[in-house]
Every structure is written in structure tokens, then in C-alpha cells.
């Protein structure tokens, strides 16, 4: 009869959703996922690949040279053993600080004069500027795990302490230490009047601001900014092949680095360090970072005095 509802009851064959907390269910799903992650279907009758080769990031990082976890030397290098390293604790957690007085570096007066000349500030009286009127400079270079939206792990600075420049490197030994790093960095920058960077306007400073927002940390420091890249371009763009820091180091400062890590390797090295706690390669990154920041200081002089 047409008027009778011809539909089968939708409730008929329906069953209760399986409770995902049911351990049998979990075990089965995990097993499936394990197989999927380790040996995706798509190869017909594919076999599960060796779980050890799983981390593709590692494979990329090692490039086949070193095995994961092994460094080719006897013992893993512990980062805390670096000279000048000490742990810092604050309300934001922990991180590592590595401090080093520099034996050779441009004098503060010279740096200050160079900065003034670049910043377009003139000393009206013509006399040597008084101590108190001198701007305190901080040179800054960041190392990050990517181009954006990923953690920054190392802040390398040159700051004025006790009449000379001191190198201070703030290191997040793992991803949980980034908060403290940012807090310490902000404190240090707050103690300086000028922050000197190389391409910081486009990269380092926005990066720092973004990571601060990510961690919901206010940034108190508001130093004046001096980006050497812009000045370098104006001065040397026409005469040099490019204005990358390494190029300027070679042509202007007459120095070439031996055995330095490449910028593209840095993120992988860091991730590996976090996993293995072996800082052998990370030490190279620290050195690279220090060299960058030193080069910046010398460049400032060259820009002003050349």
C-alpha cells in the first residue's frame, strides 16, 4: 500500500560505536597505524620497512655520513662542559648561558664612534663624549630551526660589560627552554640602548617578536635598531658580488672561515642535539654564531671608517 512508509527503519542494522578506549580496539588500531607509518600500502604487498630508518629528518640531516646517535668519537660532548657555560633559572624555566670575555675585539670607543657616525648623530661640542652619554651597544644574531613558525634556539650577543665587549650566548637545550631564553634575551636587550643586527629588520627582530607572541611573553626592551645590511648594501652593493655576511667578511674584513657549518645545516644539527644530547656538532653552530656576531662588530667599524 502506497501510504505505508516504505523505508526500512534506519535504526535497524545500526550498532553502537565501538568504544575507542576498549584496549582490544586500541591495540588493533595501533598495529594498523604502525604498519602504515612504517610501510605504507601503495607498494602492492609492501613489507614493513625497518623502524630504525623511520626518522626521515635524521636521514636528511646525516646525509648518510654519521649514524644517528653516534658521533664517530668516543664520548658524546656534553654542552654544559663548555667553558663559560652556566644554567640560568627564572620564572620562565631554564636555559643555558655561555659567556666569554673576548681577548681581541674592537674597543668600545671606536665602536661607539662608528655607531654614531652611521646613525647620523654628531657630537656638537667636538669633545670626547662623556662616559654616561655613550650609547650601550648590543650585537645580536639568532639561530632558528626554520624560516618561521618554528622555535629559535640560540641567541648570540656581544654586550658591553666592564669596559669591554663580552660574548653571551643563550641556548635552549631543548624546546622547553625557549621561553626562558626569550626572557633572558629581553633582559639583556633591555640593558642596551642600541641593538645592532645584520638583516635583523627583516628576520631576527620580527622572528623574536613572533616567538614572544607564541609564548605570550611581553617584550619590554625597546632598543634603537641598527641593521648593518642596509648600510652595507648602500656602500658596497655596486662593488661586491653580493652583500651576504660571509662575502663581506672575505672582501672587507679579509677573513675566510675554515670548516664552518652552513646555515642550511643548522636546524638539523639542533634537532639531532635535542634527541641525542651530544653537542659535538652543536659546538660548531655555537662557533658559527659567535663568528657572525664578531664579524658584525668589525663591519660596523669598517662601514664608519672606510
Amino acid at each position: 500500500m502506497e501510504s505505508r512508509d516504505p523505508r526500512p527503519r534506519p535504526g535497524g542494522p545500526r550498532r553502537e560505536r565501538p568504544d575507542p578506549a576498549d584496549s582490544e580496539e586500541i591495540r588493533r588500531r595501533i598495529e594498523n597505524l604502525r604498519l602504515a607509518l612504517l610501510g605504507r600500502a601503495g607498494d602492492v604487498g609492501g613489507e614493513a620497512r625497518d623502524a630504525g630508518a623511520g626518522g626521515t629528518a635524521e636521514a636528511k640531516c646525516h646525509g648518510g655520513d654519521a649514524e644517528p646517535g653516534s658521533t664517530g668519537v668516543d664520548a658524546p660532548f656534553i654542552i654544559e662542559a663548555i667553558e663559560g657555560a652556566r644554567e640560568v633559572t627564572s620564572g620562565l624555566g631554564r636555559c643555558l648561558v655561555i659567556e666569554k670575555r673576548l681577548r681581541e675585539c674592537p674597543g668600545l670607543d671606536r665602536l661607539d664612534r662608528a655607531h654614531r657616525s652611521l646613525a647620523g648623530r654628531e657630537d656638537v661640542s667636538g669633545e670626547a663624549p662623556a662616559e654616561a652619554a655613550r650609547s650601550r651597544l648590543a650585537f645580536l644574531d639568532l639561530e632558528t630551526t626554520g624560516l618561521s613558525a618554528t622555535p629559535l634556539f640560540l641567541a648570540g650577543l656581544l654586550v658591553e660589560r666592564g669596559g669591554t665587549l663580552e660574548a653571551v650566548q643563550l641556548l635552549a637545550r631543548d624546546y622547553s627552554e625557549e621561553r626562558c631564553l626569550i626572557g633572558e634575551l629581553d633582559r639583556l636587550l633591555g640593558g642596551s640602548e642600541v641593538c645592532v643586527t645584520f638583516n635583523g629588520k627583516s628576520f631576527d627582530l620580527p622572528y623574536l617578536r613572533e616567538r614572544a607572541k607564541y609564548h605570550r611573553l611581553p617584550l619590554e626592551a625597546r632598543p634603537e635598531q641598527l641593521d648593518l645590511l642596509h648600510h652595507a648594501r648602500r656602500r658596497w652593493k655596486a662593488s661586491l658580488p653580493d652583500c651576504r655576511l660571509l662575502t663581506l667578511e672575505w672582501y672587507i674584513l679579509g677573513r675566510r672561515r675554515m670548516g664552518d657549518v652552513g646555515g642550511w645545516e643548522v636546524p638539523c644539527i639542533y634537532h639531532e642535539f635535542v634527541h641525542t644530547k651530544d653537542a659535538t656538532r652543536l659546538r660548531d653552530v655555537l662557533r658559527h654564531n659567535l663568528l657572525d656576531v664578531l664579524a658584525m662588530a668589525e663591519l660596523l667599524i669598517s662601514l664608519a671608517e672606510a
Binding site: I30, L38, A51, E58, G146, D174, Y175, S176
Partner: peptide
């Protein structure tokens, strides 16, 4: 359990109860 698998293949790292993404 899934986080466990991701840790196994070293895509994430758990530190003090927080699991971070750990590759490029």
C-alpha cells in the same frame, strides 16, 4: 599511543610531559 609511535620514529620529543615537534 599515537604519540608513542611518533616518538618512536623521532618525529616528536616529549620533555616534562609536553610533546614537541622535533624535525624540520
Amino acid at each position: 599511543p599515537m604519540v608513542g609511535i611518533l616518538e618512536e620514529v623521532k618525529k616528536v620529543k616529549t620533555i616534562e610531559g609536553q610533546t614537541y615537534w622535533a624535525t624540520t
